[in-house]
Design a protein around this nucleic acid. Structure first.
Lengths: 122, 122
DNA sequence: TCATGAACAGCATGTTCATCC
DNA sequence: GGATGAACATGCTGTTCATGA
């Protein structure tokens, strides 16, 4: 896990969702952005374009996903990139480490609730 | 809450614990640090000296705590600062906003678990 | 304009240095 | 050496700019 500091970083969190998008296939950058912004709207979280791209690029560089250029036919020609999962075993191992980090983060947050907001008796 | 981004910041999290320490009284900076490092050891989280001091200074500046210098008698004279809670109502309101942020953070993390690690049937 | 990037700036946080008993 | 700070440096993230179709 490297050096574990406070809670999970946004980047790792988003990479997890990028893998999820790659699993489904047929999604490209800005489309994923829009879906996620919508998905998290109720929690007041609005990921940005640059974080999405950086997450995608990192996953690509690390070999968790592969991508292929597609020419999107419309009023004009536009090149987009569709992402797909790379080696399944490797991806699974990676997802496991992220899950551990999320679990740890939740534990940290729950501890704060317990320590600071529990009713004190007496 | 200002502009809510991803999960709660370490600073806010620590300030909550600083208030807790101020409630108990009789604790100074480095002592709080040691206690917290010990308290979170099992979760792999080790807060640093500078974050503790910054949290304390912010709370002081914002009026949530007050402090008084104490000359610690020992082999040598040493000046330490003991913190106490400021206006109770104000502190309570502040703690409420932090709690909301923690709740929101937990919801965000739980959503990731649900979206990415639930068994898919079929 | 939509889509992909990169560059840049700001801020959160960790590491090192300074000062005082 | 223990305690409090500040300065410095790194790193994460948001905003802006650049390029192409």
């Amino acid at each position: 896990m490297g050096k574990s500091t406070f809670v999970i970083k946004q980047r790792a969190y988003l990479k997890l969702y990028m893998l999820h998008a790659a699993e489904k296939g047929r999604l490209y950058g800005l489309q994923i952005l829009e879906e996620l912004q919508n998905h998290f709207k109720d929690l007041g979280y609005k990921p940005t374009k640059s974080e999405i791209y950086k997450s995608l690029h990192e996953l690509l560089k690390e070999g968790y996903v592969v991508r292929e250029p597609i020419t999107k036919e419309g009023t004009e020609m536009q090149t987009i990139y569709i992402y797909r999962l790379g080696d399944k075993e490797k991806v699974k191992a990676y997802k496991d480490t992220i899950k551990a980090d999320i679990d740890r983060s939740i534990a940290l947050l729950n501890r704060a609730l317990k320590d600071n907001y529990s009713q004190k008796r007496g």
